[in-house]
């Protein structure tokens, strides 16, 4: 099994890193999160899909097991305040309309991105369109702290429900475009998403233990940046590492890629907000 390759490195001196990917389950405050599932039918090259949590060291994994230890939760707390904060020309807050609170959005994250009126929309689009059209407020920056805190708060309402994005019907052309991007080699290194996350997950790329690149835990608190990282920011980072000019956060290319990558996670539980390296 490829996923055990870190142990090969461990035997050579980097000893006793305990990766819990072999059978350990993620349980957050008593709620069981599925981190391994049968790959969705559309995935031709994988039989099993694994959450990125399974590829992390036990110390990093531990940060996600307890909601208090999870540093992402301070930003979820901030988003709860933002949810109540009046902003914009209409004198409204999120809670002016969404009177049942963020809980109203249970399940939404698991079905995103989705096509609305012929357009592919992701969570950031929904938030900003409501801010602009309903509240008369300025849109938030894609990877800004306020935006990603709100995406995390809404995502958290779906934690523990299986990812289930639609790939047919209206979504089909966007999904096909995303799939094409996933398998396109970019940059001077000529690497596609698939080269790392499908062909070589479980092995090391320099000092990184490659995961399957699943996005069921985004926005995710990355220890490196010590803040919530958006899906598009992570896409940009990966493509930049191939020494390519990347697409912009919020570009149609990344929306399509997000739909395709989200569909590769279909069956894994939403973990938002996860903790990664």
């Amino acid at each position: 099994m490829k996923i055990g390759a870190w142990t090969a490195v461990a035997m050579l001196g980097l000893t006793s890193v305990t990766l819990a990917q072999d059978g350990n389950t993620l349980s957050i405050d008593g709620e069981t999160i599925v981190t391994e599932a049968v790959a969705p039918a559309h995935l031709e090259n994988l039989d099993t899909i694994y959450s990125g949590w399974r590829f992390r060291t036990s110390e990093t994994q531990a940060l996600q097991i307890d909601d208090f230890d999870n540093p992402a939760m301070i930003f979820v707390d901030q988003a709860l305040d933002l949810f109540e904060a009046v902003d914009g020309s209409e004198g409204k807050s999120c809670s002016s309309c969404h009177t049942d609170g963020p809980e109203e959005f249970a399940g939404l994250h698991a079905s995103m991105p989705k096509v609305v009126d012929g357009k592919l929309v992701v969570m950031e689009d929904l938030i900003n369109s409501h801010r602009q059209d309903v509240m008369g407020a300025e849109p938030w920056k894609w990877s800004g702290a306020d935006m990603q805190a709100m995406v995390a708060l809404i995502g958290l309402q779906s934690r523990g429900t299986p990812m289930d994005v639609t790939i047919d019907g209206d979504a089909a052309p966007f999904w096909e475009k995303g799939k094409e991007l996933y398998y396109t080699r970019f940059g001077q290194l000529e690497m596609s998403c698939a080269n790392c996350h499908e062909d070589n997950y479980g092995t090391m790329i320099r000092a990184d233990h490659l995961s399957q690149g699943q996005i069921n835990g985004f926005p995710t608190y990355r220890l490196k940046q010590a803040k919530l990282i958006s899906r598009h920011n992570r896409f940009r980072g990966c493509i930049r590492d191939t020494r390519a000019e990347t697409f912009a956060e919020g570009s149609d290319e990344f929306r399509a890629l997000e739909l395709y990558v989200a569909s590769r996670s279909n069956g894994l539980h939403v973990e938002t907000p996860a903790v990664r390296q």
């Binding site: 980097l14 060291t57 110390e59 990093t60 540093p71 220890l223 490196k224």
Partner: peptide, 12 residues
Amino acid sequence: APEIAENGNTVP
């Protein structure tokens, strides 16, 4: 302390 820290920015 971990024998290996995945990221030096946040080591428990």
